[in-house]
């Protein structure tokens, strides 16, 4: 029971809902069990963020084949809110500014939505504040941040920290981090990573989506998958990330920035 997969992705094919000719995911298989940290690495345009958003329930994509099981349940008919309330959490690459809603109001609504989903009564104000404070300490987030409108005027680092903070407040069982490292300096990266590591308890699972190996120095993964052109082209342990760091994605036929600086001798 306790080792039943958190997430199972089977032969997943997906395309843009608006433009069915654009197939983005072309047969993904992935199983994440409790306690595991997986990383998906890939060049720009490989489908990394599509996979993250698709898992969270974004309606811009259409699954054409395969399926996604979360906690053993097919998520096809579950909206993003249902998936979240079951314990899935997507930390956004670009968290949006929420005008007029304070971080506190936002999280209060989220916590109570989760409790309603579980058939529980709303959390009283005192317990809620204690919970928010405890998590703020754990994730190293200034409590005053909660009084500001969510993400409004937040720096890049603050936004990412607030994402991790939300993940902790909502007690997510599966955290999907979509390029959380992008745009972060080393200090911010360290704080964010410590926050994630503080949640690793042998039960929660994490899926780290990243372009660069740097994040994985701070959050060490158990498995690394290389995504190119909508498919995993290689899977392995954490050493695979180092390999990518040294050789880039070239061994997988990807020449990033090729349009800007074609390799010498290349011909059209």
């Amino acid at each position: 029971m306790s080792n039943a997969p958190l997430l199972q992705i089977e032969n997943l094919h997906a395309r843009l809902a608006d433009d069915p000719s654009v197939e983005i995911l072309r047969g993904i298989d992935l199983t994440i069990r409790p306690g595991e940290v997986h990383s998906i690495m890939g060049p720009n345009g490989s489908g990394k963020s599509t996979l993250a958003q698709l898992l969270a329930g974004k309606e811009d994509y259409e699954v054409t084949d395969g399926r996604i099981l979360f906690m053993g349940q097919d998520v096809e008919d579950l909206g993003p809110d249902d998936r979240a309330n079951m314990g899935m959490f997507l930390a956004f690459q670009y968290p949006v500014e929420v005008p007029g809603v304070s971080a506190m109001q936002f999280l209060k609504a989220a916590v109570n939505a989760k409790r309603a989903f579980a058939g529980e009564a709303e959390m009283d104000a005192g317990s809620l504040i204690r919970h928010f404070r405890a998590k703020a300490e754990q994730i190293n987030v200034p409590f005053d941040m909660l009084k500001r409108n969510a993400n409004e005027g937040f720096s890049g680092g603050e936004r990412k920290r607030f994402e991790i903070y939300q993940m902790a407040v909502l007690d997510a069982q599966l955290g999907i981090l979509d390029e959380t490292d992008s745009g972060l300096d080393i200090d911010a990266l360290r704080i964010v990573s410590e926050g994630v590591n503080s949640m690793r308890d042998g039960m929660r699972g994490f899926l780290l989506i990243t372009h660069y190996q740097r994040l994985l120095e701070y959050i060490v993964p158990d498995f690394v998958h290389v995504l190119v052109n909508g498919k995993f082209v290689k899977s392995g342990g954490k050493e695979l990330a180092l390999e990518l760091e040294q050789h880039g994605y070239a061994p997988f036929g990807v020449h990033e920035h090729a349009a800007i600086a074609p390799p010498a001798g290349a011909s059209a």
């Binding site: 329930g57 974004k58 993003p80 809110d81 609504a109 989220a110 909502l170």
Partner: peptide
């Protein structure tokens, strides 16, 4: 924004109402 709210568990109608 609605997707952001929903991805935190807030139902769609409540998300819209809040916004």
């Amino acid at each position: 924004l609605v997707f952001y709210f929903r991805s935190r568990g807030i139902p769609e109608n409540v998300s819209r109402a809040m916004l």
